[in-house]
């Protein structure tokens, strides 16, 4: 059982008012679209299109992929400009394990921190101990074990990793199906089987038992990594996502404002194919996109973090 050094156990850390308001903000973002932006002008376009939050970062994932180099937290000046420009929540990314970048973002008073595999990891063994912060965190996951490890560390929201900057939905689908499928399985197991399953998942038993009892994660479960069209958003929502993150998909398309509006519309009405059709019509070119099989193992972003 992971402890924070004061003898507090996983479930105790999730039983206080700070935890409730962290998860509470994630609850408020459900059913919405969180858009990646690199400056205040893009943030304004996102807000006007109906984004429920924006994610500030230095470069969108597809540019990070193209240009290479070390991807870090965005410049505080840019994040502050974005915070001054929009009234919706502002999130920003930190490198995996880079708790000092997270401290800077907390001092800046951003609304949510994404400890993200899209940036170059700062620590190859440890993620940030997120219970130590007042600002809530979201983390990526490819499967249930990874999701529960991040929640044990204090993530108040989980998103699928997908494959950021690929414009290809296949990995987001794989990860959402994995998480939802593994949760379904847990609900059918007996207690002695849950102990074994906790070992297999590499996750705390208390969290595994909680999921087995409730059939869902103890925090909202969103989707990210490859969403480029209104139908992509409708797909992941129908597979069990409670909201979507769109990265390169909007500002790397030929018509960002219109595409942003269309994805918001499709996310709200994800079960209504006629409206998803309406949203899909009259859109320009989506971002180009990559076949995952053409990406070399070393260039995959989703394998960062553990």
């Amino acid at each position: 059982m992971k402890s924070n050094g004061k003898g507090e156990e996983t479930m105790d850390l999730m039983n206080n008012n700070l935890w409730r308001v962290k998860v509470g903000l994630a609850e408020m973002l459900k059913g919405g679209v969180i858009m990646d932006v690199t400056n205040a002008e893009q943030a304004k376009i996102a807000e006007d299109a109906g984004a429920c939050a924006v994610m500030a970062l230095e470069r969108v994932p597809s540019d990070i992929r193209k240009e290479g180099g070390v991807a870090r937290m965005a410049a505080p000046r840019v994040i502050r400009e974005i915070m001054d420009t929009v009234s919706i929540p502002v999130m920003a990314k930190v490198r995996i394990g880079h708790f000092a970048e997270a401290q800077v973002l907390e001092a800046l008073e951003v609304d949510y921190i994404d400890e993200s595999e899209v940036l170059t990891p700062a620590d190859e063994e440890h993620h940030v101990w997120k219970h130590g912060f007042k600002v809530p965190f979201v983390c990526g996951a490819r499967n249930l074990g990874e999701a529960l490890r991040r929640i044990a560390e204090g993530a108040a929201m989980i998103r699928t990793k997908g494959e950021a900057g690929s414009g290809n939905i296949v990995e987001a689908v794989r990860h959402m199906r994995a998480i939802v499928g593994q949760m379904k399985k847990l609900t059918m197991l007996g207690e002695e089987e849950l102990v074994h399953e906790a070992k297999e998942l590499g996750a705390p038993f208390e969290l595994v038992a909680w999921v087995a009892k409730n059939g869902k994660l103890p925090v909202p479960n969103f989707s990210a990594g490859g969403i480029a069209t209104p139908a992509d958003a409708a797909l992941v929502m129908q597979l069990g996502a409670e909201a979507v993150f769109v990265g390169s998909g909007i500002f790397k398309s030929s018509d960002p404002a219109q595409r942003a509006r269309a994805i918001v519309k499709a996310t709200t009405h994800y079960k209504d194919a006629k409206i998803v059709l309406e949203a899909s019509e009259e859109l320009g070119e989506a971002m180009k996109g990559l076949d995952i099989r053409q990406i070399e193992e070393k260039d995959l972003l989703q394998t960062r973090g553990w």
């Binding site: 609850e27 408020m28 459900k30 299109a49 429920c52 709200t268």
Partner: peptide
């Protein structure tokens, strides 16, 4: 419900 009022307003109007 709770959420982002600017998002709600956008969709309500549309």
């Amino acid at each position: 419900p709770g959420g982002e009022s600017s998002t709600h307003l956008k969709v309500l109007t549309e």
